[in-house]
């Protein structure tokens, strides 16, 4: 097996398993008995989505996906903190 086809196979396996982990996190989001679990599940889903964007960038061999991943990371962090803050204080901006 030459390195390129090995890489293609690994890329497929990686995309499949990150997609499966996205589904697992979504199950926890639906089940999650309380709010903290749901926030955590959303945070995990954001992290997995960044992984999928990076993998898509590798598959397409394009650089433009970098900005998407960075913006997704920033928005995901801010929304996790905002959601947690809302649950903690009942207000986001005091």
């Amino acid at each position: 097996m030459n390195p390129e086809s090995f890489f293609e196979w690994c890329l497929l396996i990686a995309i499949a398993s990150v997609a499966v982990s996205q589904v697992l996190a979504m199950v926890r989001l639906v089940k999650g008995p309380n709010t903290g679990d749901r926030i955590l599940a959303l945070d995990t889903m954001v992290i997995n989505a960044i992984g999928l964007i990076v993998l898509l960038g590798v598959a397409e061999g394009s650089e433009v996906y970098f900005e998407g991943a960075l913006i997704f990371a920033m928005l995901g962090f801010v929304s996790t903190v905002a959601y947690a803050r809302f649950k903690l204080r009942g207000d986001i901006i005091e």
């Binding site: 890329l11 990686a14 398993s17 996190a25 199950v27």
Partner: peptide, 19 residues
């Protein structure tokens, strides 16, 4: 390619542990 496999494995373990 190996780094891809390792990363995919850890991501899967993270979400599996969450569940």
């Amino acid at each position: 390619a190996i780094a891809l496999l390792v990363g995919a494995l850890f991501t899967l373990v993270g979400s599996y542990g969450l569940l």
